Computed example of a mutant assay.
Amino acid sequence: MTYTAQMLDTYPAEINLEHDRLSHVIDALTSCAQACTACADSCLSEPADELPRLARCIRDNLDCADICTATAAVLSRHTGYDARLTKAQVEAAIQAVKTCGDSCAEHSDQHAHCRLCAQSCRETERALKGLLPLLEPSGKGAQQPHRAAPQQGM
């Protein structure tokens, strides 16, 4: 069991999403962010004459890594949950992993790191798309941001 799954299981309040699915998505996002960061670095280590051709791939990798990291963080927080904000963040992540996956796929025949990164992006895209319908406001629970319980001793 990953630490992500363990943390979700120890959350003291109710989470209205299936813990296994949510932990899988968070772990996929974290793994994708790492793959994108490593791919960008690998691209920068390619011969200098290839760098102009890889510039967009590097940019897409770095954008995707940042968006995946932010999305994993948003999905890890449940106090004061706002379904609309979370849904928008997941939609942004879907676009980022699609863009990065497409960009890396263009270079996957020449660079193994791009092939692996594209694969990670595709897997993360599938996981995010599977979660997206579950983020629709259902009329139950908080749809609007709300205040968390006040801190004790303040």
Results as ranks from 00 to 15, higher is better:
L75Y: 01
P133T: 06
S76H: 05
R53D: 10
G141Y: 08
H19G: 01
L8P: 01
I67L: 09
A142H: 14
C43S: 02
E136R: 14
S31Y: 07
Q34S: 14
D82S: 11
M7G: 02
E91M: 08
K140H: 15
P133E: 08
K129W: 03
R77N: 12
D27L: 03
D109K: 04
A72N: 07
A127K: 06
A73T: 13
P52A: 07
C57Y: 02
E18R: 09
A73C: 04
I67Q: 04
G130R: 11
T10E: 11
I58A: 01
A127P: 04
E123Q: 11
A118F: 02
G153I: 05
A149Y: 10
I67P: 00
E14P: 08
V90S: 01
A28Q: 11
M1K: 09
T10M: 13
A65I: 07
E106S: 01
P145S: 12
Q89K: 00
I15M: 03
C32F: 08
A92I: 04
R126T: 07
L131M: 04
A148D: 10
I94W: 03
C68V: 04
C36N: 14
Q95M: 14
P47G: 01
A83M: 07
A38D: 13
T10W: 12
D9R: 10
Q89D: 00
Q151A: 14
L29K: 03
T79V: 11
D49C: 10
K129G: 09
Q95E: 14
T71E: 02
D109A: 06
T86Y: 03
Q95F: 13
R21E: 03
D82P: 08
K87W: 10
S23Q: 02
C43R: 01
A112L: 15
S42R: 08
L22Q: 01
R84P: 09
M154K: 09
A73S: 06
L51N: 00
L85T: 13
D102Y: 04
H24L: 07
